[in-house]
Design a protein around this nucleic acid. Structure first.
Lengths: 234, 234
DNA sequence: CGCCACTTTGATCCATGTCAAATGCGGTGG
DNA sequence: CCACCGCATTTGACATGGATCAAAGTGGCG
């Protein structure tokens, strides 16, 4: 059950890896600046909210959730991250992380220790260029996500959520119609702002109408066109 | 009725202005790279969705809304921008803007033509550093906004919205309890994902319970503590 | 002064939350 | 290997917040 890895070329950290020329041995980059393929156990944290910022992470395989404390419900899910995604960049400006990251399954990540970049001997210009590229993508991505969730009914949100997962999966080089739904129904509910009962009902309804097939945590999109229609209908 | 201006030190574009040393005459920066205090009429667009990216804007005075086309309702409001805010950075990575920006009132902006930065003669390193600073703040900010809106009831959303406006206003050096609500009720409704009737009802209810005072488009927060209680209650 | 767009207020309806109970499933210990 | 327990998920019944429909103010501007 080894999870699939993304290719480096599809990874959010790639601009920086190119600069560091990490594929080469003897690149002169000191050890500990860029850690590759660190394993992370299911349930383990990458970092916690308010912890001082020190590194950005890229998911090589597996998946994670981002959570923030919430006095009413304990925790609130504010995002899911899949292989290829970059995690932690939002902590850069504030010098501390703004959410807690927890692995949804056995995963692996690459870790870039930002403070130690100057030790690499690479030109500041090249490093900064890579940072700009990474941050720019991040800004664009966040904006996309923000737009979608509010002011849609439960069916639309769920359909949009599934499509977005699938789309992210396919841009990272995986199959587009088959993917692991490793988060719990409660996690999905929290993320979409719905009750978990509603999530459950919608998923079974989608299944009964032939849009998806769901076995445990394995999801197959049977009718993408239909899902897209649901997501955009009113 | 001249709108108040933010100080440069509070502006989202400031890191770059510092690098360009724009306050000096004879700084050697060619004309047209950084335009200051361009007036924008009420209703005028800064740029439109899908238009090729060329510049980022900083609001010197006034306010704007960000809208995206929506087949069902014509347009959807995805954000409001106040004096000091940076607009357009999300277009950098994709090379095109992802929403349309329209002025809510007579306003003024500073415009930075990004493609022409190299003409300034400033060191690439300094320019890149400024870009990183700007983008980093942007990432952090977007994340903050995203988190708040979903999974809250109408009262909470409205209270959070008013508080956020006030907070942004005060961090930019304006008074915290008095501010212009220059968008229409429909705009607020679209942004918060509510019906405009609901927005109207909530505002009158807030007013009747002494939380705010609303005269036309002039809003005064009378009881911030009360509002915060509404925003976080469940 | 009068028109038109925006806003407010009222009445009704429906989607989704909430509460409750049944079912399924994985892990553990005998 | 099986029986049992605890937790996640599903399903059902009901309550309600906010959408929708309708109509009456209100204010800005020609």
């Amino acid at each position: 059950m080894t999870a699939l890895e993304v290719a480096c070329s599809e990874c959010g950290l790639d601009p920086m890896c190119q600069v560091l020329d990490y594929s080469e041995q003897g690149s002169g980059v000191p050890p500990g600046v860029l850690l590759r393929r660190q394993p992370v156990m299911k349930g383990e944290k990458l970092f916690s909210v308010n912890q001082p910022f020190h590194a950005v992470y890229a998911i090589k395989s597996g998946s994670f959730k981002a959570i923030v404390p919430d006095m009413t419900q304990g925790e609130r899910v504010v995002g899911f991250f899949l292989a290829g995604d970059l995690i932690g960049a939002e902590g850069m400006a504030n010098r501390q992380y703004s959410y807690t990251i927890r692995a949804l399954e056995q995963s692996s990540v690459c870790v870039l220790e930002l403070a130690r970049l100057s030790e690499t001997g690479r030109s500041t210009e090249a490093i900064q260029g890579a940072l700009i590229e990474m941050l720019g993508r991040e800004v664009a991505l966040n904006h996309l996500v923000t737009t979608s969730l509010i002011q849609q009914n439960a069916d639309q949100r769920m359909a949009a959520f599934l499509i977005s997962l699938s789309r992210r999966s396919v841009t990272r080089g995986f199959t587009s119609d088959q993917l692991g739904l490793n988060m719990s129904r409660s996690d999905i509910a929290s993320y979409l702002g719905l009750a978990r009962e509603t999530v459950s009902r919608i998923l079974t309804r989608f299944q009964n109408s032939g849009l998806i097939r769901l076995r445990k945590h394995n999801l197959k999109l049977l009718n993408r066109i239909g899902l897209e229609k649901v997501a955009s209908s009113r």
